[in-house]
């Protein structure tokens, strides 16, 4: 019993240390890659939904729900992005590279979800596809 309690305490202390220790470049880049992955998924999902909408394969109500899900995923990525500051200069460069991509995705996803005509949707498909590729490049470079 005492051994089990000791093992649990050590495990818990290890976990506490891991959570509480200050982040370094490695931790920060890992978080940024996770942010890029979530944003990539949101952009790709938005692109797919818009593409299928253009093909007339989706109902309006489903599209609203699907865009909402993509937007929620993107909001989660933004929250994660904002929650951690860059610990050094190299980390700040990562942040500066990812930040405009995130902002662009928020704009493109919002515009595509609210699009009232096919032309706007086509532009959305193009923009979101481009952004997804850029996120993919980021993930491959730092992942």
């Amino acid at each position: 019993m005492a051994v089990a309690a000791g093992a649990v305490t050590i495990l818990w202390a290890g976990l506490a240390y891991d959570v509480a220790r200050p982040a370094d470049y490695r931790d920060y880049s890992r978080t940024m890659v996770q942010v890029a992955e979530s944003a990539h998924d949101a952009a790709q999902t938005g692109r797919l939904v818009a593409q299928e909408q253009l093909a007339g394969r989706l109902t309006g109500l489903y599209s609203v729900a699907a865009y909402d899900d993509a937007a929620k995923g993107l909001a989660g990525a933004q929250k994660k992005f904002a929650a951690q500051g860059p610990p050094d200069k190299a980390s700040a460069e990562l942040r500066d590279r990812l930040s405009p991509l995130l902002a662009g995705t928020v704009e493109a996803l919002g515009d595509t979800a609210e699009a009232g005509d096919d032309r706007t949707r086509e532009i959305g498909v193009e923009k979101l596809g481009g952004l997804a590729s850029q996120f993919q490049d980021f993930i491959e470079a730092y992942g």
């Binding site: 992955e37 990539h40 998924d41 790709q44 999902t45 797919l48 939904v49 299928e52 394969r57 989706l58 489903y62 729900a65 699907a66 899900d69 993509a70 929620k72 995923g73 997804a132 993919q136």
Partner: peptide, 17 residues
């Protein structure tokens, strides 16, 4: 597409496509 699935709306998409 290297796209993860984390919502039910995504799961339905292949049937719609």
């Amino acid at each position: 597409l290297d796209l993860s699935v984390d919502s039910l709306s995504q799961v339905a998409l292949p049937a719609a496509i």
